[in-house]
Amino acid sequence: MSTVDRAFGFTSLHRVGVSVIRWAEDIGALTLQLWAAIWKIPRVLPVIGKRRRWTDAVRQMLAIGVSALPMVSIMSLCLGFVVALEGAAELRRFGGLQYVVDLVVIGFTRELAALITGIAVSGRSASAIAAEVGTMLVTEEMDTLRVMGLNPIEFTLAPKFLGALITIPCLAILSTLCGIFSGYFFLAFSIDMNFLVYSREVLESILLRDVWLTLIKSVVFATIIVQVGYLAGLRASGEPESVGRATTIAVVRSTFLVIVADLAATSFFYLMGWSAAG
């Protein structure tokens, strides 16, 4: 055993330790930040909170939700068509082409709508939030807020959080509708299915419970995107290029966590018996 080997062993152990500590630190910071943000939500609400915060929240809804509308709907239309196409190729062999409807409807209400919305918004907004917060930190705007005796969480995080909590579930619903419409589009072209027949099939296979699960998931994703983006922005330090790094970190982490949370939520619902096919 040479000293080089031992030194290498030490440094890799050291590196693992450092990254574990960093992850633990980030999880702790995220929890504290989430807790603080939840307590500040009432200050943003229309009647009981401050008028200016609500105006901010509306502006955030436009930035996070409304401007993501075209992207989310086009992505859902494409994905719905692909699911129908791929499904039809297999199901035709069993003579069960009508099950394409169930495939699209169940696929979107339970899983794809929330996931595609989460990923799209994560790419657009987590980076935007990190860039905005990082810039505010570099230009001393955060210090200004603190010196004025104002709470940066209430000013910058809470309106974004509320905006995302309201708009992302709406986007998920829109995504479901687009996906289902895209399924009709495919079937109308391939087997001339009537819209009324398709609608009846959809109504038979859609379950209110599944829609609720999608909404819960999208609320979880909204939380992840805003909180991870904000924390990444806060970790930007001093020099301007750290803002660029923070935006990359925000997108990578929030997309990763959205997919992990999707797995966790789906397994949880499955274990609780809420998502077994009815």
Partner: peptide, 10 residues
């Protein structure tokens, strides 16, 4: 009252 170096206007 504080005026920071970078002005820090919103």
């Amino acid at each position: 009252g504080v005026a920071f170096q970078s002005a820090a206007l919103f």
